[in-house]
Design a protein around this nucleic acid. Structure first.
Length: 779
DNA sequence: AGATCTACTTAGTACACCCTAG
DNA sequence: CTAGGGTGTACTAAGTAGATCT
């Protein structure tokens, strides 16, 4: 890949012996106990958007009063851990009547399919998985769900570093629930944290764990702790030990000469390095963007110097370097598997100590311990800075955050030193540096998603979304009431909240001029929302990552009127919600529910949709069928959230091939039918197309063959359809970020679907905290 | 009351790798 | 056994949102 140009070409330059280790911890086994369930289904609180493809015509029915107080003292439907029917929110429901569809078959989201052209950069990606499992999943291997519970959280004794440790360092060893507790308990003493080096802790660790075990039991689905579990007021850890970050190798000049006006030119290594970054991108879409070239040229020229013979990018020919690079890639590909393996092992050895950190005596994986290599900035969409040189980051750019008593990581580049060392236990980052492209921003090194710290906050996120379930009816009632408020600001808040709720729009923070021009709810422009009488709104805008959102939605009349009114007297590029920004909106939301912000609606809508669809559509037949049901629900969520991907380069070729195969099979059927008719009359089959005689089969055999072939065709047709259907839909994003894993785990337990059919290894690690959920769990 | 800083989550893409159909 | 395509994962950009500053 391009950005790792230097990196993958050569072995890392730095090697540092790792320190002997002195840490040890001993976690322990998790456990849980399943129980029976009952699924009740409430119609209530589903997202409006959940009515897929029905016209969203939300009439809110203000039936019973919801819990909402628009005042600042909301009642708190406490989030229950176990949800019993009676606790469900009042019958809220956005009525999506007219789901008739007729012309307004509004999909909750611009049906992903129409927007291929919308993505600005994307090149390739591949099609989706959806169906594939169906064929192969075999029911039997399924491992009973409950066993899952323990999946992957095996107790391990860890020995920190030294031996490149168990191959399996990817499971982090302690059950999250335990870790959590431990932390909480130990955090009684705040940041003063006289931390002791882990070794010392180990004994106390055990106790703590024991203790926590009990606790765990009790609070199986722990409530969303108001106070961050780590508690000492924002404290995130007591002790933190890690080895810093690893740098990409220094640039190694290749000496391949590019041409200027047809003649080879000499470049200094520094000039060559930047030229190479550009060369390597010759076959990307960026080359069609003048901005990219302009920015690149601006930065490269500074390095070339004003008097350099190279005066103009258009006269440059980077092909020799491009070809050299292709060649290198090819060479690498040609290496034997052993060679590759050896190389990989070598790399792992060098990197091993950077891959983990020890947080409160627990070894955790680090997410991104590699400092970003230099390269050309690949902004998405029409980013004003695309093509600019992202300079090399040095140790002197990096601030390290580490426990007070932990050894400060040795700076891996001789003669240099870290910019700063901090001991801030109110944050979770291990290191950061200023982003060279936008110097006001930072790049952080965090723990991996599988870590307890991340797991905890993930869980809190979902608990908050579940809390919204208890408030949603009231909130909907309240904003519906405000559609006609004479106070413009209130009216705008109401309409914006409605859109966020109903369409799962993002909040829409303000953006600078030096970023791509994209919008979210609060930053929608007049031109992004076209009212079409009597009550249809046509949305068309570029959202996060410059992904286009296109949707036509039928809305309640008051909303429609309000939008028309917000637009009047403005130009297309003016803000639709001129009195609003995300902080005002969120401030308002916080009055409705503690901790509520705009993004919570996305999580809520996604998760409730999954929960609802699973409960409605699961038929409890084969595992494979259940998996399909899940994928279907997953897809709806992805559509609601507008999670897109670019169409794979080979998509159309693949479709063509599928069609050809289908045709071929149809021909086979025709032939078989002819033969069958003949066989019934006792005649031999016709000759093959190549004139050879065929085996003389009896009618039964022929019929069977026909049936088989037909089934094959049907399957292919289905595959084709899902493939086409999903060519622009990205399922992964919602799975990773929006769907409460407990919904999935509980459903798997209820329907005996092995969780591995749904979550891959990294998701299992990330969601370890959810594995012991009760099978009756409902969002 | 806005602007700016800071921290952390969410997002699509590139690419290595692995599996399967042929 | 190989090619093609799917899958997993690394990577890093692009969001959200709270805190703090002005």
């Amino acid at each position: 890949m391009n950005y790792s140009l230097d990196e993958d070409d050569k072995p890392l330059v730095f090697r540092r012996s790792s320190k002997p280790d002195k840490w040890k911890c001993s976690p322990q086994p998790p456990k849980h106990s399943p129980k029976p369930r009952n699924d009740s289904d409430s119609e209530d609180d589903k997202p409006l958007s959940s009515k897929i493809s029905s016209v969203l015509k939300g009439n809110i029915n203000h039936a019973k009063n919801g819990p909402c107080k628009s005042a600042s003292t909301p009642p708190k439907p406490q989030v229950k851990d176990e949800y019993s029917d009676d606790e469900k929110p009042l019958s809220s429901k956005f009525i999506s009547k007219s789901n008739v569809g007729s012309l307004n078959k509004v999909q909750p989201n611009g049906s992903a399919s129409k927007n291929n052209q919308s993505r600005n950069i994307g090149v390739n990606k591949r099609p989706l998985d959806e169906e594939r499992s169906s064929g192969k999943v075999s029911v039997k291997k399924s491992k009973p769900l409950d066993s899952l519970t323990s999946v992957n959280r095996k107790p391990v004794t860890l020995k920190a570093e030294t031996k490149s440790d168990d191959d399996d360092d990817d499971d982090d060893d302690v059950p999250i629930s335990q870790r959590t507790k431990k932390q909480a308990s130990s955090s009684s003493k705040p940041s003063s944290s006289k931390q002791k080096v882990v070794k010392k802790n180990s004994s106390s660790l055990n106790q703590t764990n024991k203790k926590s075990k009990k606790v765990v039991k009790k609070s199986k689905y722990s409530k969303p702790s108001k106070v961050p579990p780590g508690s000492g007021e924002g404290q995130k850890w007591n002790t933190l030990v890690h080895n810093g970050v690893i740098f990409p190798p220094a640039y190694k000049p290749h000496g391949v000469k590019m041409l200027y006006k047809g003649k080879p030119v000499d470049l200094t290594p520094e000039q060559e390095e930047v030229a190479t970054m550009f060369s390597v991108m010759l076959d990307t879409d960026y080359m069609t963007k003048p901005k990219f070239k302009e920015n690149f040229w601006g930065d490269w020229r500074k390095i070339l110097g004003k008097n350099n013979p190279i005066q103009n990018l258009d006269d440059c020919d980077f092909k020799p370097i491009y070809e050299w690079h292709q060649n290198e890639k090819e060479k690498k590909k040609q290496m034997s598997t052993e060679e590759k393996k050896a190389l990989k092992e070598e790399k792992m050895k060098v990197e091993e100590k950077y891959t983990w950190a020890i947080v409160d005596s627990v070894k955790e994986k680090v997410g991104n311990f590699r400092v970003e290599p230099p390269g050309l900035f690949r902004g998405r969409g029409e980013h004003p800075k695309m093509g600019k040189l992202k300079k090399r980051i040095l140790p002197s750019d990096i601030t390290i955050n580490i426990g007070k008593d932990a050894p400060i990581p040795e700076c891996p580049i001789p003669g240099e030193s870290w910019k700063e060392i901090r001991h801030d236990n109110t944050v979770t980052w291990l290191a950061y540096w200023n982003d060279p492209i936008n110097t006001k921003e930072f790049k952080y090194v965090f723990l991996a998603a599988s870590s307890s710290l991340k797991g905890q906050s993930d869980k809190e996120k979902y608990e908050k979304a579940r809390m919204l379930k208890g408030y949603i009816q009231g909130i909907r009632n309240a904003y519906t009431k405000d559609f006609g408020n004479k106070d413009v600001m209130k009216r705008q808040v109401a309409v914006a909240t409605y859109l966020i709720d109903k369409l799962a729009l993002r909040a829409g923070n303000e953006k600078d001029d030096d970023e791509a021009d994209t919008v979210g709810c609060c930053t929608l422009k007049v031109e992004n929302v076209e009212p079409s009488p009597p009550n249809i709104l046509k949305f068309d805008f570029l959202g996060k990552d410059s992904i286009r959102y296109q949707n036509e939605v039928e809305v309640e009349l008051p909303v429609f009127k309000a939008i028309q009114q917000f637009r009047t007297g403005k130009n297309g590029g003016d803000d639709l919600f001129d009195m609003l920004d995300t902080s005002k909106l969120n401030a308002h939301l916080k009055e409705l529910m503690p901790g509520l912000t705009a993004k919570v609606f996305r999580t809520y809508n996604a998760s409730i949709t999954l929960d609802d669809m699973l409960s409605r559509e699961t038929k409890d037949r084969e595992v494979a069928e259940n998996v399909v049901v899940y994928q279907h629900a997953n897809k709806e969520v992805a559509i609601i959230c507008n999670h897109q991907r670019s169409v794979s380069k080979s998509h159309s070729a693949q479709m063509t091939r599928l069609n050809e195969k289908i045709d071929e099979l149809r021909g086979v059927i025709k032939e078989l039918e002819t033969d069958l008719a003949r066989a019934k009359k006792g005649k031999p089959p016709l000759k093959n197309s190549d004139g050879k005689p065929k085996r003389n089969l009896n009618p039964e055999a022929l019929e069977k063959k026909i049936a088989q072939t037909k089934a094959k065709i049907e399957k292919m047709e289905r595959d084709k359809e899902t493939k086409e259907d999903l060519k622009t839909v990205a399922l992964g994003t919602s799975k990773i970020n929006y769907l409460d894993p407990r919904i999935t785990v509980a459903w798997c337990k209820r329907h005996e679907v092995p969780i591995e059919k749904i979550f891959n290894k990294s998701l299992l690690a990330k969601f370890a905290w959810s594995m012991d959920v009760d099978p009756s769990f409902r969002f």
